[in-house]
Amino acid sequence: MKISGLHHVAIIASDYARSKRFYVEVLGLQVIAEVYREARDSWKLDLRVDDTTQIELFSFPSPPSRVSRPEAAGLRHLAFRVDDVDLAVAHLEHNGVACEPIRIDEYTGKRFTFFADPDDLPLELYEA
Rank of each mutant, 00 (worst) to 15 (best):
R76V: 00
Y107A: 11
A116T: 13
A10P: 12
T113A: 04
D117R: 13
R40I: 15
C99V: 09
R21Y: 14
F114V: 04
F22M: 15
L27Q: 05
L57E: 01
I102C: 01
K2S: 11
T53Q: 15
V97E: 03
V82W: 02
P64S: 11
F80H: 03
P64V: 12
A10V: 15
A116D: 14
M1P: 00
P118G: 09
D105L: 09
F22W: 13
D84G: 03
E100V: 00
Y16W: 03
D50V: 12
I32Y: 04
S14Q: 13
S59P: 00
A116M: 10
G109E: 11
E93C: 02
F114N: 05
L121G: 15
I32W: 06
I3W: 05
E56M: 12
V31N: 09
F115Q: 09
E71W: 04
R18Q: 13
Q54G: 11
C99K: 02
G74R: 08
A128H: 12
E56P: 14
R103G: 10
V9H: 10
P101L: 00
E93W: 01
R66Q: 14
S4K: 11
E124K: 08
S19A: 12
G96D: 05
R103P: 08
D51Q: 08
I102E: 04
V67P: 02
A88P: 00
F58M: 12
E127L: 03
